[in-house]
Amino acid sequence: MFVSELRFDCFADTTISLAEQAINNLLEAWRANGQVLGREFAIALHEGSFRVRVLLPEDHSLANRHNSPWAKQAISQLSQAKLLAPREKLLGQDINSEISCSEPPSWQLLYTSYVHMCSPLRSGDSLLPIPLYQLPATFNGDHKQLIRWQTEWQACDELQMASATAAEFAALHELSDIDSDLFRRGWDLRGRIEYLTKTPTYYYLYRVGGKSREQELQRPCPRCGNHHWYQPEPLLELFHFRCDNCRIVSNLSWDFQ
């Protein structure tokens, strides 16, 4: 991933509130399309211009060819706030994050966690994140629904990792049960992505608990009952189960690793 600084210059008198609204609208459009990563963006007023630093999947993530209809509209509306289109200054590669996948994958999966800011779509060959703007829009011109699903998955993951309140069990249900709302929406998004990309796309089903390692190794696919989805050699050193029929991958329960 890369760090870039955007500079919004004024061509006439404006107000902070107008500028803030216009800039945030553009940043939110880019975020919904996977062009910028993260949830919060600090906007600074410095020497008559507005500046913001953003994290990008690739060094060309903000190229016009990647913009969604919403992003293009947001850029055109900057003039209403008396702002010019942003000037971009690429600061360099972020040393604390992963590089993005640059090769077409043979298969891919939806996988995220509360510590990840990158795309929730990963290459099945390398587990590297795939920038969402490289895909056809999943719904309504961008990937907002996929970003929303990722945000909710991460919130549940953080709750269950904290293990501090009764909310842990509700969060764990959303992450690991196929009858949860989070699974249903994520699995449907997975199917949409597979249809659009023509690439086998899987859903990561979180697994913790179980009575014993022996029973865990024999557990069937929770969706179709397939008893032959265990992988003697874990895929990507992480996924011990894969059901090709249901497009689900899962880990050996963390209690027995």
Score class of each variant (00 low, 15 high):
122 R>S: 06
95 I>V: 13
91 L>S: 07
144 K>S: 11
128 L>H: 10
117 M>V: 15
129 P>R: 05
136 P>G: 04
115 V>Q: 10
103 E>W: 04
164 A>P: 04
107 W>R: 13
97 S>M: 13
157 D>N: 10
129 P>W: 02
162 A>L: 14
98 E>K: 08
162 A>N: 11
147 I>T: 03
111 Y>P: 01
93 Q>W: 13
94 D>R: 12
113 S>L: 05
143 H>C: 03
108 Q>T: 12
109 L>Y: 09
148 R>W: 00
158 E>K: 00
120 P>G: 09
144 K>V: 00
104 P>N: 02
149 W>S: 03
100 S>H: 04
163 S>T: 06
133 Y>A: 13
164 A>S: 15
146 L>Y: 04
144 K>P: 00
120 P>Y: 06
136 P>S: 12
152 E>Y: 11
159 L>C: 12
102 S>P: 00
119 S>R: 09
115 V>I: 09
125 D>R: 02
105 P>I: 05
145 Q>C: 01
128 L>V: 01
161 M>R: 04
141 G>A: 02
113 S>A: 05
108 Q>M: 15
150 Q>E: 07
108 Q>L: 08
107 W>D: 14
155 A>E: 14
161 M>P: 00
121 L>R: 13
104 P>H: 02
144 K>W: 03
99 I>L: 11
154 Q>F: 04
137 A>H: 09
121 L>T: 08
104 P>A: 03
116 H>K: 11
154 Q>W: 01
124 G>N: 02
159 L>V: 15
145 Q>A: 07
116 H>C: 12
124 G>A: 12
159 L>N: 03
162 A>D: 04
155 A>R: 06
131 P>C: 08
112 T>D: 00
154 Q>M: 09
116 H>G: 02
105 P>W: 10
127 L>A: 15
104 P>M: 00
122 R>P: 05
153 W>V: 04
133 Y>K: 01
121 L>A: 13
114 Y>P: 00
106 S>M: 02
95 I>K: 15
115 V>D: 11
100 S>M: 06
132 L>Y: 07
104 P>L: 08
161 M>C: 08
119 S>N: 06
136 P>L: 07
153 W>N: 12
133 Y>G: 10
141 G>H: 00
105 P>S: 08
146 L>I: 14
100 S>I: 06
116 H>L: 15
155 A>S: 10
149 W>Q: 11
136 P>F: 07
121 L>C: 10
97 S>C: 07
152 E>V: 03
118 C>L: 09
